[in-house]
Nucleic acid binder design. Structure first.
Length: 104
DNA sequence: ATGCTGACGCTGG
DNA sequence: CCCAGCGCCAGCA
């Protein structure tokens, strides 16, 4: 038998069980899979989510769902710069990554 | 569908 | 570091 549906992680961006978008769910899954001490760019996340180039869409969900239930602070810009965090807490994000030992 | 917005990516200044 | 323009995409009114 085959698994009709994969695990529905509680991290998924959904409304009371209703999936908003497969894309959003994928993004959360990828980000939550980022190992500690490592960072992933929005572009990479979007690519793994199946939507290469949807870097904006990725950040969009972060801003809308920055529950901090996912290591969104491990998601940085392609330049290696921080980008944004919690409506402008770039400082906190930088310190957080440095503390974890992320290679910037 | 259309228009606007947004935690992007890149190039240029 | 900042800003401007263009291209990219998903979400929402």
């Amino acid at each position: 038998m085959k698994k009709i549906k994969k695990n529905q992680s509680p991290l998924s961006f959904s409304k009371k069980g209703k999936i908003r978008s497969d894309f959003a769910n994928r993004v959360v899954a990828v980000v939550s899979k980022i190992p500690k001490g490592k960072v992933m760019t929005y572009g990479e996340v979007a690519r793994k989510a199946g939507k290469a180039g949807a870097s904006r869409a990725v950040g969009y969900w972060m801003s809308k769902n920055y529950d901090l239930k996912i290591p969104c602070h491990r998601v940085i810009r392609s330049d290696g710069k921080i980008g944004n965090y919690n409506r402008g807490g770039t400082k906190a994000k930088t310190a957080l990554l440095k503390k974890e030992g992320a290679v910037l």
